[in-house]
Design a protein around this nucleic acid. Sequence first.
DNA 1: CGTTGACAAGTATACGTATGCAATCGAGTG
DNA 2: CACTCGATTGCATACGTATACTTGTCAACG
Lengths: 342, 342
Amino acid sequence: MKWERDGREVKKVTGFDVARRAGVSQPTVSRALRNLPGTSPETRERVLRAAAELSYIASDSARSLSTQSTRRIAVVSEELTNPYYPELVEPLRRRLAEHDLRTVVITDSEHRAVGIDVLADGSYDGVILTTCERRSSLPRDLTERGIPHVLVNRVLDVAESPSCSVDNVGGTAAIVELVADLGHRTVGAVLGPVTTSTGRERAEALRAGLRARGIRLRRDMVRRTSFGHDPGRNAAHDLLRRSDRPTAIVCGNDVIALGVLSAARERGISVPEQLTVVGFDDIPMASWPIIDLTTVRCDLDALARTAVELLHAEPARPGLAPVERRIPVSLVLRRTHGPAPA
Amino acid sequence: MKWERDGREVKKVTGFDVARRAGVSQPTVSRALRNLPGTSPETRERVLRAAAELSYIASDSARSLSTQSTRRIAVVSEELTNPYYPELVEPLRRRLAEHDLRTVVITDSEHRAVGIDVLADGSYDGVILTTCERRSSLPRDLTERGIPHVLVNRVLDVAESPSCSVDNVGGTAAIVELVADLGHRTVGAVLGPVTTSTGRERAEALRAGLRARGIRLRRDMVRRTSFGHDPGRNAAHDLLRRSDRPTAIVCGNDVIALGVLSAARERGISVPEQLTVVGFDDIPMASWPIIDLTTVRCDLDALARTAVELLHAEPARPGLAPVERRIPVSLVLRRTHGPAPA
DNA sequence: CGTTGACAAGTATACGTATGCAATCGAGTG
DNA sequence: CACTCGATTGCATACGTATACTTGTCAACG
């Protein structure tokens, strides 16, 4: 897949070409272009001009090979079509850029399995995992290879790597309080996958919270699905079909909640009069007037800042528990919640 | 940012380490691991075992430097938070994977300007541009450097590089027909930025189409905004505030349309009874029952397939017009359109 | 038994940049 | 004037993989 131009193949301009043109040596070019000391102003000037004339761009492979560092961080997100993740990528990119690190997004929604071989071939100085499952071996592999990494928004069953995630327990507690205070007694839930810490933590906090308020969360009122609109919608139909249908449905995240709203709409169940729906994440969409979803917000910029901070911190030591930060959340009251119907 | 383990820095395993362990030379390791001819089955076996025992992963920088190729394609998308783009990335990734090419997403929503230096430092064998503006110099720069690339979903003012995009003219024509047939005579529009080909093509096709049907598109009934919910919403408020407000609003894309729907909701204007709204792109959200947006669909997989095809095709020759493919579209009738109110 | 050839595996080197070290030059100093 | 020191620049080499070329081995064949 080499392209040609004017019939001849375009040859890459190297530091030697620049050196020849400027009448200096290649190392001098290297030093001049990076403003290292030990180059006279005139020489630097000549080099800069030659480099500009030749449109020289230093080979990243060669530099990486030589310096053993790439100044590049991989952000792994296997669910890029879930609006939450692009929203998370941007602040991460901004924060990384502040440290002069380039961001590269790696995704694979198909097999949901970006391999260690892709991440540990020396292409990246660090890895940020945003969609890691509870028992993923990726963090351990990265640790063994000495590659700096952080889990964002997810944690492992056996904490092994630094992580920062949202306060799922606190957020869910706020939801429970809201739902209980509104008088709901028949509560349903469409929660995220058991394989994810987000799905699991929110589920457990919900069960525990409701129990503490004397509300039973019946097993058959709970559905677990993947984090998507259609799965949420299907699950909600299951719950809303029944005669003793719930008056409130707590959702694993906002996208699921949107699916629940869709199901309610299809069944002619009005929200919030007949059904309360609460999400989690506060994706931008949730605040749109056509949606106006009551949900839990987390400051993604704080999450990103912490993640980048941890990436630079000391790595996990065998034996020592790794750093595990939690970002606080807050309930956002909009218009999908209301008092339980009589 | 080098991590340590057990107090000692982790040293990278190289092909020489594997060679020593297997009792062969480094080139033999290289050949064995890639199944090249010229290695006996027993030797290959020994090498594979040694490599596995050491968890060897070949350095990508070194390989790239040596082979002058990376098997990696950069997908540049400067508006990843616009749901259309993640949706486009996935089929691209899948198609590229079929050619044994790895996909890397480059984004920069902040300055909307991924530079040539990032793309032409030898890190990528090719570039797919999805958010290129009409006068961007990136395509020309890439051409001059002999880097294979394709514009997807966008074209340049002066076609310079291969591109494939959706049939904006045909799609808009279908919208015009629908709106006209429904009897709308006071038509408004919230269109995309003039700096994008999508924004411009759809705008021109709309003007021309309406004129052909004898419908005037008044200048003060048209707003141009960036492709986002809030801009769309603000613009729609402008249009809907007036006493002679439009009975139909044609939108630059779906996200803008959602903003228009939000504005209508806020003003208590019911859709589709009092207002018809039509989008463009058919993002997944558009088909959700809570939205149910009438819009124009494009087969993203076809778009992606064509893009990857063009990436492998002959590059643009100076003087010759580059390939410019169009993917057909189809109108999707949902529930945001209706007859013009009396 | 010598020759030839196929195959396996090692040797040498290219790829392009960064950097430790040596060399050169000029100025300042005793 | 010899000497020192600092500044500037070149030289040599490392980084890790791929590959052209060479060497060595063994079997087939005349």
